[in-house]
């Protein structure tokens, strides 16, 4: 199931991240506690020109962004959650010319910490990489109200 309200919130959030905008990240799907983002193929993020395979760094950014935005799909109010750590396993090279998707879910959310899991895959469904992450909850008060309202879509 797709939740349009959540998709719009995540869309507003990732569109103010310069690097996410520059990579062309888009929201593919959002639902309670889970989120899928899409990284389009582009030549500027190639790691190996002989094969055209994109660099792992771009996939790390995709999975960090997806895992770091999935809390928007679980919290009633927006709060910024900085990354504590990420562990990325690269299973196989992404096939050139095709987008890469990342689907993140929340495994556990405590008062202070959000535990996430994420999988990066392509249209054939084969896993390209997986990522386990932990994020710090600094609380909604640490995020300016105008910024929170903008993400939540509250009219000023």
């Amino acid at each position: 199931m797709t939740d349009k309200v959540l998709m719009d919130r995540v869309d507003r959030f990732i569109n103010i991240l310069n690097q996410a905008r520059d990579l062309g990240l888009t929201v593919a799907d959002a639902d309670a506690g889970q989120l899928t983002l899409c990284l389009p193929y582009s030549e500027k993020i190639i790691g190996n020109p002989e094969t055209g395979v994109i660099h792992g760094g771009a996939i790390t950014t995709l999975m960090d962004t997806t895992s770091g935005s999935v809390m928007i799909c679980a919290l009633d109010e927006f709060e910024l959650c900085p990354t504590l750590d990420l562990r990325v396993d690269y299973m196989r090279p992404a096939e050139p010319g095709k987008p890469v998707y990342a689907r993140a879910e929340i495994r556990k959310m405590t008062r202070n910490i959000v535990f996430t899991r994420c999988e990066a895959f392509q249209d054939d469904g084969e896993i390209v990489a997986t990522c386990v992450g932990t994020f710090m909850r600094i609380g909604k008060d640490a995020t300016p109200k105008a910024y929170r309202d903008m993400i939540m879509g509250v009219d000023q």
């Binding site: 991240l17 790390t60 770091g68 910024l80």
Partner: peptide, 14 residues
Amino acid sequence: NPMLPAIHGGVIGG
């Protein structure tokens, strides 16, 4: 994060 502003964590990783 445009508030600090800070480098995207993914870019630091890359």
